[in-house]
Nucleic acid binder design. Sequence first.
DNA 1: AAATCTTATTTAATTTTTTTAAAAAGTATT
DNA 2: AATACTTTTTAAAAAAATTAAATAAGATTT
Lengths: 414, 414
Amino acid sequence: MEDRHKQIKSAQLRSDILKQLYFKKTLLYSELSLIYNKSIPVINKIINQLIKDGLVAEVGYAASSGGRRPQMYSVKTNAMYIMAIAMDQFCTRMMIVDMQNNPVTNTQLVELPLNDNANALPQLISCINSCIAKSGINKTQILGIGIGMPGFVSVSDGINYSYLDAGDQKLTHLIHKAIGVPVYIDNDSSLIALAEQKFGAAKLKDQAMVINLGWGIGLGMIVNGEIFRGSNGFAGEFSHIPLSEDGALCLCGKQGCLEAEASMLVVTKKAIEGIKQGKLSSLQSFINEPLERIATAIFEAIAIGDQYVIELLSDAGYKIGKALAILIHIMNPQTIVLSGRGTKAGKIMLAPIQQALNKYCIPRLAGNTELLISTLGFDAELLGAAALVMEYLDDDILNAHFKQKQQPMDKTSV
Amino acid sequence: MEDRHKQIKSAQLRSDILKQLYFKKTLLYSELSLIYNKSIPVINKIINQLIKDGLVAEVGYAASSGGRRPQMYSVKTNAMYIMAIAMDQFCTRMMIVDMQNNPVTNTQLVELPLNDNANALPQLISCINSCIAKSGINKTQILGIGIGMPGFVSVSDGINYSYLDAGDQKLTHLIHKAIGVPVYIDNDSSLIALAEQKFGAAKLKDQAMVINLGWGIGLGMIVNGEIFRGSNGFAGEFSHIPLSEDGALCLCGKQGCLEAEASMLVVTKKAIEGIKQGKLSSLQSFINEPLERIATAIFEAIAIGDQYVIELLSDAGYKIGKALAILIHIMNPQTIVLSGRGTKAGKIMLAPIQQALNKYCIPRLAGNTELLISTLGFDAELLGAAALVMEYLDDDILNAHFKQKQQPMDKTSV
DNA sequence: AAATCTTATTTAATTTTTTTAAAAAGTATT
DNA sequence: AATACTTTTTAAAAAAATTAAATAAGATTT
């Protein structure tokens, strides 16, 4: 039971206001005053302190309806930097962003298979190091490294139970020690959900389910305005719910999992098989290429309206829709967002998903849930990884970087 | 997004401390100080005020490991009363309890079918009135009426969209006006979950799923230590998730709903049918009785180990287990509690449910979830209804009943 | 049983925090 | 340019909470 009633003291509002500015881009005194239920002078004091520390800047004036125009405040772009990393089963992307989420490096793409790869962790570490080196940014200027990864990730423990085994250490600690910058990890789908909630299609939504259409089918849950992780951090294991009694065999060992029936990986494999058996498709020339290429080819096929690919995706969509019907019955979300690298495929799936919802959902529930397409697409996970670092920001971390200048004593003697 | 950061001022702690005392039975200064992060003098002040108002009493001393023994405090038993009402499709139970949940009336049982019964609402109101009259308690002494009912209930709107149509008024307002006492309604399964969380098997659990084994199969969700209701108040519609493609036809019009395969109602009907076709069972002599009697007979059959009944329940249990596997994958709960009037049947179902979980759940998830039997049983909904009233208690309501005595002014002139 | 040690509660004083009020600064309208 | 209005800053006042000290009362030791 959540019994501990914490009281936010304004002295501990510094980091919170900074977060607020990061997520909302720009804010006024009056808005901050409303958000925190504090009087303007209290906000004024903190903002002035943040400006003195070089963290926040005035960025012009907002409109006024007659009267002095209010100052807008933002985090200073180059006050600090964040490293964002998005991993999937085969590939890892990373970049460094400033305090307004502008990339300050290119997105580095590394082939880094996670499965049965004892070398994955050292490889990841060396990539991070070289990316930072190339950027020319001092490590002390980096607030943290946020990493999204597939698998059973416990955020609170800093451990991934599926990949990147760190022995008896915490994965976060190990990388932190190796790089010298704090590390935060999370499940890829949760980060996509975080990104959609903060910057994307689920913005300002309190109850949203974000489907990560990647090689698998992930689920990131926004519950009561926050990422929901369940009691062990494993909530949202959507892809392995038992859907059909005698379905395809899944990698997890069970039968009839959603993932085994409708994931991008399965669609891709079906496409290859179908083409080999004579189906006509624009994919034909790609069937011997690596998966990563085929995925791109599928998106291109969608763009030109390839009938066979659309047929396969529709079929997958209908199955996802049936699973979403279950999800809606349990969670009664306001919004479902189709996101992740497969966002483009999601557009094709919208209709069959809606069809399945109509069939399998009680109308009162289906009617109350909107089905949206990500506005962030493939970038969602990276944005989420950056947001993760900011989510964890607190006054201790902030003070470690920006010591509040000691006020000169008024009393002449101690 | 939950942005409003509320600060608890000690002046507004009165009702909260009273709630705390109601739910925890008895507390010490030191415990309250920890719960609210307030110093002892602050707690001391509020408790003294509550004692002066006649709401709280000292109830002896706790043990000490050397030193003065601390005072224990409780809500005064007869400070106020709560009316608790539990409705199901066919029957309604009601009672009045004091501030320590002791019944001060017998449990009144009324036959009150909800389906196609335009008279249900007036009937309910007259029952409530006569129950209060019989109790001899003054209406001003009743803090509120908590009602659990099946159907699509919106707690925040005070409306039941399935039964007890109140026209263009809110159901809660209508009853409030008719009786003259504030009314709070909730879904039956949510109230059972509330009861289990506050007083039962899910006590102190932050993530718990409570299955309401009634005539249907309900779900009350405890998420992050609080009852979860989703965006429209309809979360936990567990009984109508699509389980099998070609299952039995459900009352909701769809096929293969969990409820249509495994609810008590279905088990009962199957039992009647089976016996008619020659199955041997202790139920034989009951098959022409009303449902309410048959339910009792089934519980008796369980007690004497009736093989046919146990077989039917095992079968239902396995199906419930499969549905629970889905729930565990999505929510990753710490605890699942089988509760409601069918708690006794739940005991028989434990084994087949666990079996289904082992088959359909990823081991890491199933292994982290404990499966428990309610400790409250048939009383859960009534207890939850009472708890609901207390959950809604705030300083405004409290002050309406117990005006804080005006402190005599120190200044002689204004 | 007296002395000593612990722990609890109450009271008073101090400190911290927050708000209110007033002044100053800046815009828009007339 | 004068007026009306809004925002920001500063200063003063009020409110709230904590600390510290004093008192109370039970437990332990001698």
